[in-house]
Simulated assay, not measured.
Amino acid sequence: MSLENGIKDVINTKLKDGTVEKLIGEQLEKGVVNALDNLFRSYGDVTKIIEEKVKSVMIPYLEGYDYSRYITKLDSVLVDVLQSSALENKKLLENFKELMIPEQDKTIKATELFERWKEYVEGNVETDGLEVCYEDGPPTYEYVSVSFEVDYNEERSWSDMRNAVLVFECEHDSEMNYQIRIHNWKKFDKEEWTIDYKSVHDINSLRHLDEFAIFLMKISQNGTKLILDSDGDSDEIEPEEKPEASFS
C-alpha cells in the first residue's frame, strides 16, 4: 500500500467514526468563544454598544438627581479632608465645596451683583499706595473708588440678539476688575439677560479662583438670569485691611 492510499484510508476511517466531525466542532466552539471574547473586550463592538446604552440611561438620571440632601454630609466630609490635606489643596477644596451648594435665586439685579462685587473688593483690594487716615478712632486706609457700567454692543437692526458687557472697575487696583459678557433674545427673554461666564474645565484650576469668580460660576451654571435695573453706578468702599498704627 502506498503512503497516499494509507492516508486516504485513515481519513475515511476517521470520517466514518465521527472523529473529524468532533474535531471540527471543537474548533468551531473555540472560534465562537474567541470571537465573543474579542467583542466584549474594552474596545469591542458589543462593549461599545452596552456602554452607550448605559450612558443613555444613567447620564440623564444623574443630571436630574437632587443632591441637596447630601450637602450636609458632603460638608462634613470636606471639612475632614480640609483638616488633613496639604495647604496647597485647601483653596481648591473650599471652592469645590462652595460650588456644590446650589444657588437658589433665579434672577439677580445688576445693582445686587455690584454690591456682591464691592464686598469682594473690600476684602481683597491692594492697600499699597493708599493713604492712612488717623481721624476719628483707629487708623484706616482711604476709601477706594469703584464703579460699574453696561457696555452695549452695536447690533444689526434686523437682529433679535442683544449683546453687552458688564464692567466692574476698581480705580486703585486693576486686579479687582471684572468683565462679564451677557446676552439677550428680545423675543424670548424679555428683560432677562443670560450670564456668559465661562466655567473652569480643569478641576485643578479651582485652587486659583477667588470667591467672586466662584459666585459667577455658580449663578451661570444655575441659569440665574440678570436684570439690568441700572446701566451704571459708582461708589467708594473702605478696605477691610487695617494699617498698623504709627506714632512717628
Score class of each variant (00 low, 15 high):
Glu149Phe: 14
Ala213Glu: 06
Gln179Pro: 01
Lys242Ala: 12
Ala110Met: 03
Phe168Ala: 05
Leu209Ile: 03
Ser248Phe: 14
Leu166His: 04
Gln104Pro: 02
Glu29Gly: 13
Arg69Leu: 14
Glu126Asn: 09
Lys91Val: 07
Val167Ser: 04
Glu122Pro: 00
Val132Gln: 03
Thr47Glu: 13
Ala35His: 12
Lys22Glu: 11
Glu238Arg: 07
Arg156Ser: 15
Asn153Lys: 09
Ser68Trp: 09
Glu171Trp: 08
Ile237Trp: 04
Ser230His: 08
Phe212Ala: 03
Leu209Val: 01
Asn12Tyr: 11
Pro243Ile: 01
Leu226Gly: 03
Ile50Phe: 14
Ile71Lys: 04
Glu52Gln: 12
Asp128Ser: 08
Val165Met: 03
Lys118Cys: 13
Gln83Tyr: 12
Ile59Phe: 04
Ile101Thr: 09
Ala213Ser: 10
Val125His: 02
Glu52Trp: 09
Cys133Trp: 10
Gly25Trp: 13
Lys225Thr: 03
Ile49Ser: 14
Glu211Gln: 06
Lys8Phe: 15
Ser248His: 08
Gly123Cys: 15
Glu29Cys: 09
Glu52Ala: 13
Thr194Cys: 05
Lys73His: 06
Arg69Gln: 14
Ser76Asp: 15
Val32Lys: 07
Val150Ser: 00
Gln221Gly: 07
Glu154Met: 15
Lys90Phe: 15
Lys187Phe: 03
Lys242Tyr: 08
Ile195Gln: 00
Gln83Leu: 12
Phe188Thr: 02
Thr72Gly: 04
Ser220Glu: 06
Phe168Thr: 04
Val79Pro: 05
Met58Lys: 05
Glu236Asn: 11
Lys109His: 11
Leu92Trp: 11
Arg162Leu: 13
Tyr43Val: 07
Arg116Ala: 01
Arg162Gly: 06
Tyr152Arg: 10
Leu39His: 15
Leu130Gln: 09
Ile11Asn: 10
Glu88Gln: 06
Lys30Gln: 13
Lys187Gln: 10
Glu119Leu: 13
Ile214Asp: 01
